[in-house]
Design a protein around this nucleic acid. Structure first.
Lengths: 143, 143
DNA sequence: TATTGTTATACTCTATAACTATA
DNA sequence: TATAGTTATAGAGTATAACAATA
Protein backbone atom coordinates (compact mmCIF):
# COMPACT_ATOMS: atom_id res chain seq x y z
CA UNK A 1 0.00 0.00 0.00
CA UNK A 2 2.59 2.57 1.02
CA UNK A 3 4.86 1.16 -1.70
CA UNK A 4 2.14 1.62 -4.27
CA UNK A 5 1.44 5.07 -2.94
CA UNK A 6 5.10 5.93 -3.29
CA UNK A 7 5.12 4.75 -6.89
CA UNK A 8 1.93 6.65 -7.52
CA UNK A 9 3.42 9.81 -6.04
CA UNK A 10 6.53 9.48 -8.15
CA UNK A 11 4.49 8.92 -11.29
CA UNK A 12 2.25 11.83 -10.44
CA UNK A 13 5.12 14.17 -9.76
CA UNK A 14 6.83 13.50 -13.06
CA UNK A 15 3.60 13.45 -15.01
CA UNK A 16 2.59 16.78 -13.53
CA UNK A 17 5.90 18.32 -14.42
CA UNK A 18 5.61 17.01 -17.94
CA UNK A 19 2.11 18.39 -18.32
CA UNK A 20 3.11 21.67 -16.77
CA UNK A 21 6.06 22.01 -19.11
CA UNK A 22 3.82 21.31 -22.08
CA UNK A 23 1.22 23.78 -20.91
CA UNK A 24 3.86 26.39 -20.46
CA UNK A 25 5.14 25.67 -23.93
CA UNK A 26 1.66 26.20 -25.31
CA UNK A 27 1.20 29.37 -23.27
CA UNK A 28 4.53 30.68 -24.54
CA UNK A 29 3.46 30.00 -28.08
CA UNK A 30 0.14 31.72 -27.49
CA UNK A 31 1.94 34.78 -26.11
CA UNK A 32 4.41 34.77 -28.92
CA UNK A 33 1.71 34.83 -31.58
CA UNK A 34 -0.76 37.06 -29.74
CA UNK A 35 0.79 40.28 -31.13
CA UNK A 36 -0.19 39.02 -34.58
CA UNK A 37 -3.81 38.81 -33.48
CA UNK A 38 -3.77 35.05 -33.88
CA UNK A 39 -5.26 32.44 -31.60
CA UNK A 40 -3.05 29.41 -31.16
CA UNK A 41 -4.88 27.15 -33.56
CA UNK A 42 -4.86 29.62 -36.39
CA UNK A 43 -1.17 30.24 -35.86
CA UNK A 44 -0.41 26.52 -35.90
CA UNK A 45 -2.29 26.14 -39.16
CA UNK A 46 -0.44 29.06 -40.71
CA UNK A 47 2.89 27.50 -39.75
CA UNK A 48 1.85 24.26 -41.40
CA UNK A 49 1.01 25.88 -44.71
CA UNK A 50 4.53 26.02 -46.06
CA UNK A 51 2.89 24.75 -49.21
CA UNK A 52 -0.80 24.57 -50.22
CA UNK A 53 -2.49 21.74 -48.33
CA UNK A 54 -5.80 19.95 -49.04
CA UNK A 55 -8.26 20.61 -46.27
CA UNK A 56 -8.77 16.95 -45.47
CA UNK A 57 -5.03 16.49 -45.15
CA UNK A 58 -4.82 19.38 -42.73
CA UNK A 59 -7.54 17.63 -40.74
CA UNK A 60 -5.31 14.56 -40.60
CA UNK A 61 -2.24 16.50 -39.57
CA UNK A 62 -4.07 18.40 -36.86
CA UNK A 63 -5.93 15.26 -35.81
CA UNK A 64 -9.32 16.93 -35.96
CA UNK A 65 -12.56 16.71 -37.87
CA UNK A 66 -12.96 18.10 -41.39
CA UNK A 67 -15.76 20.35 -40.20
CA UNK A 68 -13.38 22.04 -37.83
CA UNK A 69 -10.99 22.72 -40.70
CA UNK A 70 -13.83 24.49 -42.46
CA UNK A 71 -14.15 26.61 -39.34
CA UNK A 72 -10.40 27.35 -39.23
CA UNK A 73 -10.31 28.10 -42.94
CA UNK A 74 -13.19 30.54 -42.60
CA UNK A 75 -11.43 32.40 -39.85
CA UNK A 76 -8.11 32.45 -41.68
CA UNK A 77 -9.84 33.74 -44.80
CA UNK A 78 -11.60 36.47 -42.81
CA UNK A 79 -8.18 37.66 -41.75
CA UNK A 80 -6.94 37.52 -45.31
CA UNK A 81 -4.23 35.00 -44.49
CA UNK A 82 -5.30 32.13 -46.75
CA UNK A 83 -7.40 31.46 -49.80
CA UNK A 84 -9.17 28.30 -50.85
CA UNK A 85 -7.85 27.16 -54.21
CA UNK A 86 -9.38 24.33 -56.23
CA UNK A 87 -7.47 21.07 -56.52
CA UNK A 88 -7.07 18.69 -59.45
CA UNK A 89 -9.74 16.47 -57.96
CA UNK A 90 -12.65 18.86 -58.10
CA UNK A 91 -13.93 17.82 -54.70
CA UNK A 92 -10.74 19.04 -53.07
CA UNK A 93 -9.87 22.54 -51.95
CA UNK A 94 -6.37 23.50 -50.92
CA UNK A 95 -5.56 26.15 -48.38
CA UNK A 96 -2.86 28.46 -49.63
CA UNK A 97 -1.27 31.38 -47.82
CA UNK A 98 -1.85 34.81 -49.30
CA UNK A 99 1.05 37.26 -49.54
CA UNK A 100 -0.09 38.62 -46.22
CA UNK A 101 -0.23 35.08 -44.87
CA UNK A 102 3.29 34.36 -46.05
CA UNK A 103 4.56 37.50 -44.37
CA UNK A 104 2.83 36.58 -41.13
CA UNK A 105 4.14 33.03 -41.30
CA UNK A 106 7.68 34.27 -41.65
CA UNK A 107 7.30 36.68 -38.74
CA UNK A 108 5.77 34.02 -36.53
CA UNK A 109 8.53 31.57 -37.33
CA UNK A 110 11.07 34.24 -36.37
CA UNK A 111 9.29 35.06 -33.15
CA UNK A 112 9.02 31.41 -32.18
CA UNK A 113 12.70 30.85 -32.90
CA UNK A 114 13.60 33.83 -30.72
CA UNK A 115 11.35 33.13 -27.79
CA UNK A 116 11.11 29.38 -27.49
CA UNK A 117 11.79 28.22 -23.94
CA UNK A 118 13.37 24.98 -25.08
CA UNK A 119 15.92 27.09 -26.91
CA UNK A 120 16.36 29.74 -24.24
CA UNK A 121 16.60 27.53 -21.20
CA UNK A 122 18.38 24.41 -22.39
CA UNK A 123 21.80 23.84 -23.85
CA UNK A 124 22.23 21.87 -27.01
CA UNK A 125 23.19 18.74 -25.09
CA UNK A 126 20.22 19.13 -22.80
CA UNK A 127 17.89 19.44 -25.76
CA UNK A 128 19.30 16.25 -27.20
CA UNK A 129 18.90 14.45 -23.89
CA UNK A 130 15.34 15.70 -23.55
CA UNK A 131 14.49 14.61 -27.08
CA UNK A 132 15.85 11.15 -26.40
CA UNK A 133 13.84 10.77 -23.20
CA UNK A 134 10.65 12.05 -24.77
CA UNK A 135 11.06 9.65 -27.65
CA UNK A 136 11.16 6.75 -25.25
CA UNK A 137 8.03 8.04 -23.65
CA UNK A 138 5.96 8.66 -26.72
CA UNK A 139 4.18 5.98 -28.68
CA UNK A 140 5.45 6.09 -32.21
CA UNK A 141 2.90 7.50 -34.58
CA UNK A 142 2.82 9.20 -37.95
CA UNK A 143 4.39 12.61 -38.31
CA UNK B 1 16.38 33.34 -42.72
CA UNK B 2 17.38 29.71 -43.18
CA UNK B 3 19.24 29.93 -39.87
CA UNK B 4 16.12 31.22 -38.17
CA UNK B 5 14.06 28.59 -39.87
CA UNK B 6 16.41 25.92 -38.60
CA UNK B 7 16.12 27.24 -35.08
CA UNK B 8 12.38 27.41 -35.47
CA UNK B 9 12.27 23.83 -36.71
CA UNK B 10 14.35 22.63 -33.82
CA UNK B 11 12.19 24.48 -31.33
CA UNK B 12 9.06 23.18 -32.96
CA UNK B 13 10.24 19.60 -33.02
CA UNK B 14 11.10 19.54 -29.34
CA UNK B 15 8.02 21.51 -28.34
CA UNK B 16 5.81 19.15 -30.27
CA UNK B 17 7.38 16.12 -28.65
CA UNK B 18 6.93 17.68 -25.26
CA UNK B 19 3.29 18.45 -25.94
CA UNK B 20 2.71 15.03 -27.42
CA UNK B 21 4.27 13.33 -24.40
CA UNK B 22 2.07 15.38 -22.10
CA UNK B 23 -1.04 14.62 -24.13
CA UNK B 24 -0.21 10.96 -24.06
CA UNK B 25 0.28 11.14 -20.33
CA UNK B 26 -3.16 12.69 -19.99
CA UNK B 27 -4.68 10.14 -22.32
CA UNK B 28 -3.07 7.31 -20.35
CA UNK B 29 -4.50 8.73 -17.17
CA UNK B 30 -7.92 9.05 -18.78
CA UNK B 31 -7.78 5.43 -19.92
CA UNK B 32 -6.57 4.27 -16.56
CA UNK B 33 -9.46 5.89 -14.74
CA UNK B 34 -12.14 5.26 -17.38
CA UNK B 35 -13.03 1.81 -15.94
CA UNK B 36 -14.09 3.64 -12.79
CA UNK B 37 -16.53 5.73 -14.80
CA UNK B 38 -14.57 8.86 -14.03
CA UNK B 39 -13.69 11.71 -16.35
CA UNK B 40 -10.18 13.02 -15.88
CA UNK B 41 -11.06 16.06 -13.84
CA UNK B 42 -13.15 14.17 -11.37
CA UNK B 43 -10.41 11.59 -10.96
CA UNK B 44 -7.82 14.29 -10.33
CA UNK B 45 -10.02 15.83 -7.67
CA UNK B 46 -10.56 12.46 -6.00
CA UNK B 47 -6.81 11.89 -5.87
CA UNK B 48 -6.34 15.28 -4.20
CA UNK B 49 -8.82 14.58 -1.43
CA UNK B 50 -6.47 12.62 0.79
CA UNK B 51 -7.98 14.74 3.50
CA UNK B 52 -11.11 16.97 3.52
CA UNK B 53 -10.39 20.15 1.59
CA UNK B 54 -12.26 23.49 1.59
CA UNK B 55 -13.78 24.12 -1.81
CA UNK B 56 -11.98 27.41 -2.29
CA UNK B 57 -8.69 25.72 -1.56
CA UNK B 58 -9.39 23.06 -4.14
CA UNK B 59 -10.03 25.90 -6.58
CA UNK B 60 -6.58 27.24 -5.78
CA UNK B 61 -4.90 23.88 -6.16
CA UNK B 62 -6.61 23.16 -9.45
CA UNK B 63 -6.09 26.75 -10.62
CA UNK B 64 -9.71 27.21 -11.54
CA UNK B 65 -12.72 29.28 -10.55
CA UNK B 66 -14.81 28.51 -7.45
CA UNK B 67 -17.89 28.09 -9.61
CA UNK B 68 -16.21 25.24 -11.41
CA UNK B 69 -15.50 23.54 -8.10
CA UNK B 70 -19.22 23.71 -7.37
CA UNK B 71 -19.73 21.92 -10.67
CA UNK B 72 -17.11 19.25 -9.86
CA UNK B 73 -18.49 18.79 -6.37
CA UNK B 74 -22.01 18.31 -7.72
CA UNK B 75 -20.83 15.63 -10.10
CA UNK B 76 -18.75 13.89 -7.46
CA UNK B 77 -21.70 13.94 -5.08
CA UNK B 78 -24.01 12.50 -7.74
CA UNK B 79 -21.63 9.57 -7.98
CA UNK B 80 -21.58 9.21 -4.24
CA UNK B 81 -17.84 9.79 -4.02
CA UNK B 82 -17.78 12.91 -1.83
CA UNK B 83 -19.95 14.78 0.62
CA UNK B 84 -19.94 18.46 1.49
CA UNK B 85 -19.23 18.85 5.17
CA UNK B 86 -19.49 22.17 7.05
CA UNK B 87 -16.29 23.87 8.19
CA UNK B 88 -15.54 25.78 11.37
CA UNK B 89 -16.07 29.03 9.51
CA UNK B 90 -19.71 28.58 8.59
CA UNK B 91 -19.19 30.00 5.11
CA UNK B 92 -16.85 27.15 4.27
CA UNK B 93 -17.72 23.69 3.01
CA UNK B 94 -15.17 20.93 2.84
CA UNK B 95 -15.21 18.14 0.33
CA UNK B 96 -14.66 14.81 1.99
CA UNK B 97 -14.46 11.41 0.36
CA UNK B 98 -17.19 8.94 1.25
CA UNK B 99 -16.29 5.33 1.99
CA UNK B 100 -16.98 4.62 -1.63
CA UNK B 101 -14.80 7.58 -2.60
CA UNK B 102 -11.96 6.33 -0.43
CA UNK B 103 -12.16 2.92 -2.06
CA UNK B 104 -12.13 4.44 -5.52
CA UNK B 105 -9.22 6.70 -4.64
CA UNK B 106 -7.20 3.75 -3.47
CA UNK B 107 -7.99 1.77 -6.61
CA UNK B 108 -7.15 4.70 -8.87
CA UNK B 109 -3.85 5.27 -7.10
CA UNK B 110 -3.02 1.61 -7.61
CA UNK B 111 -3.98 1.69 -11.27
CA UNK B 112 -1.96 4.81 -11.92
CA UNK B 113 1.06 3.33 -10.18
CA UNK B 114 0.77 0.21 -12.31
CA UNK B 115 0.16 1.81 -15.66
CA UNK B 116 2.05 5.07 -15.68
CA UNK B 117 4.17 5.43 -18.79
CA UNK B 118 6.84 7.38 -16.99
CA UNK B 119 7.26 4.38 -14.73
CA UNK B 120 6.92 1.70 -17.38
CA UNK B 121 9.12 3.20 -20.06
CA UNK B 122 11.89 4.94 -18.18
CA UNK B 123 14.53 3.67 -15.81
CA UNK B 124 15.07 5.35 -12.51
CA UNK B 125 18.04 7.30 -13.84
CA UNK B 126 16.09 8.40 -16.86
CA UNK B 127 13.28 9.63 -14.67
CA UNK B 128 15.72 11.66 -12.65
CA UNK B 129 17.27 13.11 -15.78
CA UNK B 130 13.86 13.98 -17.16
CA UNK B 131 12.81 15.64 -13.92
CA UNK B 132 15.96 17.73 -13.93
CA UNK B 133 15.42 18.88 -17.51
CA UNK B 134 11.76 19.68 -16.97
CA UNK B 135 12.61 21.69 -13.90
CA UNK B 136 14.91 23.86 -15.95
CA UNK B 137 12.13 24.35 -18.43
CA UNK B 138 9.32 25.22 -16.08
CA UNK B 139 8.85 28.58 -14.50
CA UNK B 140 8.80 28.10 -10.77
CA UNK B 141 5.36 28.53 -9.34
CA UNK B 142 3.43 27.45 -6.29
CA UNK B 143 2.80 23.78 -5.76
C1' DT C 1 -20.83 3.53 -53.16
C1' DA C 2 -17.21 6.41 -51.03
C1' DT C 3 -15.01 10.88 -50.32
C1' DT C 4 -14.58 16.20 -49.89
C1' DG C 5 -16.07 20.09 -47.95
C1' DT C 6 -20.13 22.55 -45.78
C1' DT C 7 -23.89 23.46 -42.63
C1' DA C 8 -26.54 23.13 -38.58
C1' DT C 9 -26.40 21.76 -34.28
C1' DA C 10 -24.98 20.21 -29.83
C1' DC C 11 -21.80 19.08 -26.22
C1' DT C 12 -17.89 19.88 -22.93
C1' DC C 13 -15.09 22.82 -20.38
C1' DT C 14 -14.61 26.76 -18.04
C1' DA C 15 -15.23 31.54 -16.85
C1' DT C 16 -17.91 35.94 -15.42
C1' DA C 17 -21.39 38.28 -12.93
C1' DA C 18 -24.84 38.57 -9.72
C1' DC C 19 -26.58 36.60 -5.51
C1' DT C 20 -26.74 34.70 -0.33
C1' DA C 21 -25.03 33.83 3.87
C1' DT C 22 -21.52 34.70 6.86
C1' DA C 23 -17.43 37.09 8.66
C1' DT D 1 -16.67 45.63 3.36
C1' DA D 2 -14.76 41.13 2.00
C1' DT D 3 -15.07 36.10 1.45
C1' DA D 4 -17.32 31.19 0.45
C1' DG D 5 -20.18 28.88 -2.23
C1' DT D 6 -24.11 28.90 -5.65
C1' DT D 7 -26.70 29.98 -9.79
C1' DA D 8 -27.47 31.42 -14.38
C1' DT D 9 -25.41 32.25 -18.36
C1' DA D 10 -22.12 32.71 -22.00
C1' DG D 11 -18.09 31.78 -24.82
C1' DA D 12 -14.44 28.87 -26.85
C1' DG D 13 -13.32 24.69 -28.87
C1' DT D 14 -14.68 20.80 -31.10
C1' DA D 15 -17.50 16.98 -32.62
C1' DT D 16 -21.62 14.55 -34.99
C1' DA D 17 -24.99 14.04 -38.56
C1' DA D 18 -27.01 15.17 -42.70
C1' DC D 19 -26.10 17.11 -47.19
C1' DA D 20 -24.32 18.44 -52.10
C1' DA D 21 -20.91 17.77 -55.39
C1' DT D 22 -17.77 14.79 -57.29
C1' DA D 23 -15.25 10.45 -57.88
Amino acid sequence: MSDRDARHDQARGLSQMLIRAAEQTKADFAETVAPFGLPVHLARAVLMLTTPVPMHELADRLACDRSYITNLADRLEERGLVTRVPGADRRVKLLELTDSGLAVRSQIADAVAERSMVLLRLTNEERQALARLLEKLVVTQRD
